[in-house]
Amino acid sequence: MMRVVRSVLALMFAAFVLYGMQHTRPLYSRITSPIAYSGGMNKRVEASAFALSLDSVRVARVLNTETFGKSKTYTSSGVWVVVEGEAEAKFETLGLTSGEWLSGSGVRYVLTDRVPATIEMMSGDVYQPGLPRRVLLMFEMPEDAVAGGTVVVARTKLLPLDDEIRIATNVSGKDIEPAITIRRNDEGPPWTVLPQR
């Protein structure tokens, strides 16, 4: 009789310990989360494999694109956020395929996949060591996700424990332009954001 009670108690204890371990351990996403390097606007933020600086964030209700004389209008149920900056690989050739906008409340928005690759965007480009290159990131989000947002850039979404750069954008979200146009250029810088300011 005592032996049965003892086994039952031991089982219950084991279950309790396992439950406790399951619920006090950090989340899987946290254990495998990228290593973040943080900074602000207009500063070069260095990760171990690449560096990034952002110098412009613009918000608009409508996004137009002009490529090779063809123009297209993209409407949204929210707003468009167009971010520009400069990125550089440090030691080896790499791509920066993952870009996210993290709203103040922690909701994620990814680089838009509505605008075709004829507009040169960060995720399609290759970065060579020692050759800094302008980057263009376009997001679509509800108006209330703009204020206090952070841009998060990484080589890919799939590599755990890789570098990630987080830049706080300090935008108020109140300055919304009716429309902006991204024009692809034949020479000089690959694109221009209009109206210029």
Partner: peptide, 18 residues
């Protein structure tokens, strides 16, 4: 297909009715 673009839909962003 996304009605807005009359083209293939990609990701649906949080809290954006489409």
């Amino acid at each position: 297909y996304l009605d807005r673009d009359k083209y293939l839909a990609g990701y649906f962003n949080p809290n954006m009715p489409e």
